[in-house]
Simulated assay, not measured.
Amino acid sequence: MGLLAIALGIWTLRTGWVAPTVRRQVTRPKLHGLGALLAGTSVLLQSLFYFRILPRASWEVRFFGGNAFLFAGLLLIVLSQLLRPRQSPDHADPSSV
């Protein structure tokens, strides 16, 4: 799951494409991609620590580090849906013309 989230995050950052299930809600695809990248990194690191592929770290580092990445990613995903879309200078407000 972590690799899938990382791949989707990188794809969104590079192309601006968002999965169809959240396309209506996402107003800032770059924030969404960065959030997916952070959340996927958290899941991947936790699984690598669990299966002892990475060197042993204390439980505090694994717990707080993993949660920091996960919550930062989730916060960015939520912000990508709540923030207003940016106004493009190419599309001026018709009432101001």
Rank of each mutant, 00 (worst) to 15 (best):
V26H: 05
R23P: 03
T12I: 03
K30P: 05
F51A: 15
A19P: 09
A68I: 06
L83Q: 12
P89I: 00
K30E: 11
L48P: 11
G2H: 05
Y50T: 14
L70K: 08
V18T: 05
G9H: 03
L38W: 02
R23G: 02
F64K: 15
S42R: 08
V43F: 09
R23A: 13
W59G: 10
R56I: 10
Q81W: 00
P29R: 05
L82F: 07
G9E: 00
T27Y: 02
G16D: 06
R14A: 14
W59Q: 12
L74C: 10
L31V: 03
L34M: 13
F63S: 14
F63L: 15
A68S: 14
P55R: 11
W17E: 14
L37S: 08
L4W: 08
L38N: 02
S42H: 02
V78H: 06
T15R: 12
W59A: 14
G9C: 04
L38P: 04
S80W: 00
V22Q: 11
R62S: 13
V22N: 14
N67M: 13
W11V: 05
L31P: 09
V61Y: 12
L34Y: 06
A57R: 12
H32Y: 12
I6S: 07
V43T: 10
H91N: 09
T41V: 08
R56D: 12
F49V: 04
L34S: 13
F63N: 15
L75M: 10
W17A: 14
I10R: 14
G73K: 01
V26N: 05
I10Q: 10
L31C: 04
K30M: 09
S42C: 06
L44G: 06
A68K: 09
P55L: 10
L45C: 11
A39H: 10
V61H: 09
N67C: 10
P89V: 01
P55G: 04
R24P: 03
S42W: 00
P20M: 01
H91I: 07
W17M: 12
G35H: 06
R52G: 02
L38Y: 00
Q81F: 00
G33K: 12
S58Y: 03
R56H: 13
L75Y: 05
L13F: 04
R52C: 07
A72K: 09
F51T: 13
V78M: 11
E60N: 06
N67P: 09
L74S: 08
L82M: 07
G35Q: 06
H32W: 11
V18A: 01
G33F: 02
R62Y: 03
A19K: 05
G73A: 01
L13I: 04
V26K: 03
L44E: 13
L4R: 12
D90R: 11
R84V: 01
L31R: 06
V43A: 15
L38G: 02
I77A: 04
L75Q: 05
A39L: 14
S96A: 04
L4P: 05
L48C: 07
L38R: 02
S88Y: 02
L3G: 13
Y50L: 14
S58W: 01
A19N: 11
L31S: 03
A7H: 10
F71G: 10
P55D: 08
A68F: 13
W17G: 13
A92V: 05
